[in-house]
Amino acid sequence: MSAALLTDLTIFILALLVGIEVIGKVPATLHTPLMSATNAIHGIVLVGALLIGVTAHNAVGYVLAFIASFFAGANVVGGYTVTGRMLKMFRKKAPQGEGQPELESLDGHRGIRGLAERIGIGIGRTPS
């Protein structure tokens, strides 16, 4: 086992734990935008696609670089735009009800629950 492999394995395991920790607390109402946001972050593969260019010197390399950068570009830009649109919709919906203060309150749980009630989604188990 090489040192590089060991390092990558370490990063992988720690990243798994960070993922569980960060994602596990997200309330049900935010699951769809979260899915979209994590998908947008996957667009980091654009970096990999760009780096093809460093060693690509023939047709095979250029074709793969073109398709990969095209796909990754669509993933990044589309992903963030669509997530932004989803969250914007979230925001617009809130003030229609009883007003924004509850949502804006720093007490996250009350805000989430209030929003969930407003749009008619019951949160089964809110982590607390």
Binding site: A65, V77, G78, T81
Partner: peptide, 23 residues
Amino acid sequence: TTTGWVVLIVGSLLGSAVGLWAA
């Protein structure tokens, strides 16, 4: 290479435009 830059820039920008339009 120059071709490499062109391929990558055109590819990314086209993909971004399609993604932006779709989104």
